[in-house]
Amino acid sequence: MKIDKTYEGSFHIVGGDFSHAGEASTELKTILLSAGVEDEFVRRVAIATFEAEMNIMIYATAGILRYTISPEEIRIIAEDMGPGIENIELAMQEGYSTAPDWVREMGWGAGMGLPNMKKNADTFRIDSVVGEGTKVEMIIRR
């Protein structure tokens, strides 16, 4: 499969469901690898998506991860029904986290999720409304 047109898809993610953590990003990675795109691009997409997926799993009740693959880039939108982020600037700081202890004991919640998404994406946008949810939009170019 070569990328000669636009492909779209989505994954539903349920909050708190750690046993399935990472499955959406793994599947997306498999799709991209089978399309024959460069490893380094796949790695960036997989990492950014994995972090978005984990954030939904850790903080939200549920969420949806949508992707659009085109020949030049991939666009990922992660939208959740969650508590929202009070201070986005603070949340973007490396090491800042509001994760509870049990999440930290699972190896997550050390405040690197959003910085990691930003690091791997060419365009990164985050909007959040407290009490409603958070939307992250990322574009990663080849």
Partner: peptide, 10 residues
Amino acid sequence: QQAIRTSDIA
């Protein structure tokens, strides 16, 4: 499992 899943992604 998380460690394996993460390693696969990375």
